[in-house]
Design a protein around this nucleic acid. Sequence first.
DNA 1: GCCGTTTTCGGCCCGACTGTTTTCAGTCG
Length: 585
Amino acid sequence: MISNREISKILYEIGEYLEIKGVMFKPRAYEKAGYSVENLEEEVAEIYKKNGLKAVEDIPGIGVSIALKVEELLKTGRLKYYEKLKKSFPVKIGELSAIEGMGPKMIFKLYKKLKIRSIKDLEKAAGAGKIAVIAGFGKKTEEKILKGIEFLRKSGGRFLLGVVLPQARSIENRLKELKHVNRVAIAGSLRRMQETIGDLDFLVTSKKPKEVMKFFVSMPEISHIYSQGQTKTMVRLKSGIDADLRVIPDISFGAASQYFTGDKRHNITIRALAERKGFKLNEYGLWRGEKLIAGETEEEIYKSLGMVTPSPEIRNDSGEIQVALQNKLPKLIGYGDVRGDLQVQTNWTDGENSIEEMAESAKSAGLEYIAITDHTKSLAMTGGADEKKLLKQMAEIDQLNSKFQALNSKFRILKGAEVNILKDGMLDIKDEVLAKLDVVGIAVHSHFNLSRAEQTKRIIKAMKNKNADILFHPTGRLIQKREPYDVDVEEIIKVAKETGTILEIDADPYRLDLKDEYIRKAVAAGVKLSINTDAHSKNSFHYLEFGIAQARRGWAGKNDIINTRPWPEMLKLLKTKQNIKNKIA
DNA sequence: GCCGTTTTCGGCCCGACTGTTTTCAGTCG
């Protein structure tokens, strides 16, 4: 079965081949279709299977012609049109265009002149000085290509949100302190709080752009200056990420924020909408002819276009514009709305700190409660707890809670565990002990390579355990390190609804699991979620911000997240408690 | 090749900067 990712990759590549051939407009059509498929919630294969060709045509950006091509791909796993293009121009186009500064035109020229087909060819030619001598190229272009290849190898081109955000805020703060600077904002994928960040975008309003630029390029973390102008400067930081700075007038601050926050698809759609309404929208404002209609705030721009302002996290042209035009945007969970953390590891297993240290740290992070969820026995490498150890830990938690009460603190430690799901879907702790816990998390930590059907069946079996409250990190992925295990998340969501199992949004910056698209599905299905840090150290409670961002990108509201409630209310939403209540009633 | 709160035909986002030019093409966001 061919996946959305594979289909979108082929559509993107077709767009690039057509671009090289100088075909008008079609490249953008294919790019748009590729993007649309890439960001689709449902597998195109499923859509086609269920509702046929017409349903594929209903996907935005896909019309009769591309739908037929997708059908061919689904049926045969191949696409003659694509193969013909590849044959006519036998170059690894996806690979080459991933290099910073390499576009279709350069790829074309390099193939014509030097028969360059791959990064390997390109590196060899650049290293031998063969590129600098081609007309239209030069020494600098050659150097830039070599650097681009090096960067691509080193980083895969993107950085984790959790790694980048502190760096960006540090720069933001220094810009704010500058004398000639009035306003500062972070824009781009960072403002959208994407899982991974390609580069940093800073916006500054100032009457003395030259001074600001001078400061920016002389910051200690700068390793390279790509370009430096009056309004735009681009640099590389020593950490490896690129950063752009734009200086704009105050009157354009909102317009620039809107323009540079994106994403690209959102902006294209918004600008087309503006044009239809007789405006022109650029980074300096919303214009009718020569007249500035709006520009100082994003809100007045969106308002002039007849819509409410979508939160940056959901600006990706996935329906937010239509909903905003109808003033029906959901109220997203706020960054201060989470009251407790339901996945916390301690030095009872693989965490660094004691239960008390974790509790104290959570308290000073503003939380009202945490659940201690150490690993269980079949995860031997962590010293996972057996029934006896769990009971002992529960006793210690009781003591600590008494201590908090004696000190007049309302902070509460809940008893929990991260219980292993065995290969056959059984849990590795006896039910009578699980029943004594406040919060039972269940998780897959082994047998990642089961077939989709087996993996799904196994997890569902575990979810059906009446003591299993929350499915931790439901897909097991580690961003840029490990693919998710093959599991039918749609089915998991369905079963979560049926069984009252909570799905976790693991806020660890490497996990961010569930993904936004599944969060949106779960929310739509009425499944409850919890945002947890998965903290293994007392310094990790700030992960909550990443988890909340993830929830916002999945259109989740405060009510969709159980741990936005005080702990007594939160517990009532857990399956275990519901069962007990049902039994009593 | 796609799409429609002006359109089923005629459009398709827009501006900054670099490098290699001698007035501009290419790339990026």
